[in-house]
């Protein structure tokens, strides 16, 4: 018998929690970004688990699209980080507060 799907879901949930905690607590914007990738991967794992559990190809197609969107998001996000760093010489989230009001 194969591993039960719920085990994968638990692993994915833990990975998502780890990523969420990283986004909320780390100060470096790049590490926050990487934690975001962790969360996206956890969701991908959930999609693949449910695709297997429901025997539905839709879950895997969704992961395909999530991968593409994640690639685009990383390109633009890192571009913004580099642009911010050029102007203010910081990659710490606490220092980037111009929009705080």
């Amino acid at each position: 018998m194969t591993i039960p799907g719920s085990w994968y879901l638990v692993v994915a949930a833990l990975l998502f929690g780890l990523g969420a905690f990283g986004v909320l607590t780390r100060r470096n914007v790049i590490v926050m970004f990487m934690s975001l990738e962790l969360m996206l991967n956890a969701v991908n794992l959930t999609f693949v688990s449910y695709a297997r559990m429901l025997n539905d190809v839709g879950g895997q197609v969704d992961v395909f699209f999530v991968l593409v969107v994640a690639a685009a998001e990383v390109v633009v996000g890192l571009g913004i980080i580099v642009a911010i760093f050029r102007q203010r010489a910081t990659v710490t989230a606490d220092d980037i507060s111009s929009l705080k009001g």
Binding site: D56, V57, G58
Partner: peptide, 19 residues
Amino acid sequence: FYVASGAWSSGAVSQSGSL
């Protein structure tokens, strides 16, 4: 965890084809 420890599937019917 509460959701994951439930049944194998919700009983939804495949919409996009069999894997």
